[in-house]
């Protein structure tokens, strides 16, 4: 058990009108980057809140870093970045960080040093300007996010939980966030993040868990998950202008079960028993000029579509972010 950062066993949480999480079990190995994937309303945030003991499950047990998560001080070893970010607007940056550090039980005399190092590392403290002395509402949005991020990591947590860390970030900050996740992993931390952006998850995660409607759809190492769903997917690219002629071929239910149409690029899932060779023949026969035809492992996005189904993805799910 010692190699698990988190162990959730058959956890259920009901609210007045609906069940947010149903009989969810999952294990997160220590040192892993773990993705919690699912459409909006799937129960990701509820799960994260239960992990942090913000809300209690109705049934089931949760172990965080080998302790019951209601145990004293165990959450002091966890860092949390909520989905919607915000800070006390009128507070001075240093005082705010000191407050967040004290909340996590960091000793007072260590705090000043740690805060200075972090501000320097995030370019918020330079010889020219020390933003630590400024008030939060004097900072730009990007700087505020940096401060929040410092607040999450200031107490050097073993486990870092990020709820939708990439939402609302511009490409530069999103890149910085990705770099930081990788850095944290190198330092031996465990990182759990929730996202509905499959591309990020696919690139970053060692393991994933896909949930929908409060239930686990699948979980495991990304490589394993992809291998299990492999062999029936085709990547197809054609010259622009030739896509119209393809229509009837791809629409035939005999060969193709599902199409993700990105205009010039298609990711296809073959119908049961369909021969990819036959598909290629028909594509060529349709007159389209083929640039690429390859049997591939499906992307997480494809697996997600396949397993969760279209009915759940209308709101909020996007494959590319």
């Amino acid at each position: 058990m010692a190699d698990l950062a988190i162990s959730i066993k058959s956890v259920t949480k009901r609210f007045a009108s609906h069940t947010a999480v149903r009989a969810l079990s999952l294990d997160v190995p220590r040192g892993a980057v773990y993705g919690l994937l699912g459409p909006n309303g799937a129960g990701k945030t509820t799960t994260i809140r239960m992990l942090l003991n913000i809300i209690r499950p109705d049934e089931g047990t949760i172990l965080v870093l080998d302790s019951d998560n209601a145990a004293r001080d165990v959450l002091d070893r966890v860092g949390y970045l909520p989905e919607e970010r915000g800070l006390y607007r009128k507070m001075q940056v240093k005082r705010l960080l000191r407050f967040l550090g004290e909340l996590k039980g960091v000793r007072s005399r260590d705090l000043a040093y740690r805060i200075d190092r972090w501000l320097e590392r995030m370019d918020l403290k330079t010889p020219a300007k020390d933003w630590g002395e400024a008030r939060i509402d004097e900072l730009s949005r990007g700087m505020q996010q940096k401060v929040q991020f410092i607040g999450t990591l200031l107490h050097d947590p073993e486990l870092v939980i990020l709820d939708e860390p990439f939402s609302g970030l511009d490409p530069i900050n999103a890149q910085a966030m990705k770099d930081t996740v990788v850095e944290l992993k190198r330092d031996g931390k465990t990182i759990i993040f929730s996202t509905h952006l499959m591309d990020n998850a696919e690139r970053l995660c060692d393991s994933v868990c896909i949930i929908a409607r409060g239930e686990k759809v699948l979980d495991g190492r990304v490589a394993t998950v992809k291998a299990e769903h492999g062999g029936r997917h085709v990547a197809l690219a054609v010259e622009s202008g030739d896509t119209d002629t393809l229509g009837s071929v791809l629409a035939s239910g005999q060969l193709v079960k599902r199409v993700d149409d990105s205009n010039r690029y298609f990711e296809l899932e073959l119908a049961d028993g369909a021969d990819p060779q036959e598909l290629l023949r028909q594509v060529v026969a349709s007159g389209a000029r083929v640039l690429r035809f390859e049997l591939v492992q499906p992307s997480l996005h494809q697996i997600f579509l396949q397993r969760v189904g279209a009915s759940d993805i209308e709101e909020g799910i996007t494959g590319h972010g």
Binding site: I54, L75, G86, K104
Partner: peptide
């Protein structure tokens, strides 16, 4: 209300009850 609208509350209750 400020803690709710800025979502600071969520950060705080992740550390204290």
């Amino acid at each position: 209300i400020e803690e709710k609208t800025t979502r600071v509350a969520e950060v705080v209750v992740a550390s204290v009850s």
